[in-house]
Computed example of a mutant assay.
Amino acid sequence: MAYDELLAARLRDLLVDEPSVAGREVTEQKMFGGLGFMVGGNMAVAASGQGGIMVRVAPDETDHYVETTAAVPMEMQGRSMRGWLRVAADDVSDDATLGTWVGIGASYAASLPPKHP
């Protein structure tokens, strides 16, 4: 399954106005069948090739978001990855909720040292 281009456009639009990315370069990169959005070279959020979004969060906040939101831990090769969450498309159907996740992912990515190509 390819990523949802409409969802990717919504992510792009929200990132433009996200205060935490001010002064940081926002780039896009196709990966794992999805479209990732980087802030300062660090992954912030992605339109997933499996539907919905992937969000990068502080690893020590993973459990909090899993317990208090519709997010689930991202799994790769059967292993749960701390600091990475999946949120289903139905759970980000409105811009306010999607904007909250964009803010969380962008803020965390912006807090990391910038990566240079």
Rank of each mutant, 00 (worst) to 15 (best):
S80N: 12
F37A: 07
L15S: 04
Q29I: 10
P113I: 10
R10C: 10
D94G: 10
S107E: 11
D90H: 14
L6Q: 13
W84F: 15
P114K: 14
G51F: 11
M81S: 09
D95W: 07
E67T: 11
V66Y: 05
A106S: 11
L98Q: 05
A89D: 08
G103Y: 08
P73M: 13
A9P: 07
V102H: 03
R86P: 01
A109V: 10
G36K: 02
V87W: 01
D4R: 09
M31Y: 12
G36H: 06
G51I: 10
M76R: 14
G40H: 07
D95S: 13
G41F: 00
G36Y: 02
V21A: 15
M81C: 10
R82V: 00
T27D: 15
Y108N: 03
D91P: 01
M81K: 13
A2P: 14
L15C: 09
V102I: 15
R10I: 12
V55Y: 00
L35K: 08
H116Y: 10
P19L: 11
L14S: 02
R82Y: 02
G83F: 05
A44H: 00
M43R: 04
A71C: 09
L6V: 12
P19H: 12
G83C: 04
D90Y: 06
G83P: 04
R79L: 09
R79P: 01
L35Q: 06
D60F: 03
G41A: 04
A2M: 13
G36L: 08
M31K: 15
A9L: 13
M1E: 01
Y3S: 05
L14I: 03
L15N: 05
V87D: 01
A106R: 03
G33W: 08
L6K: 15
D94Q: 14
A106V: 07
H64G: 06
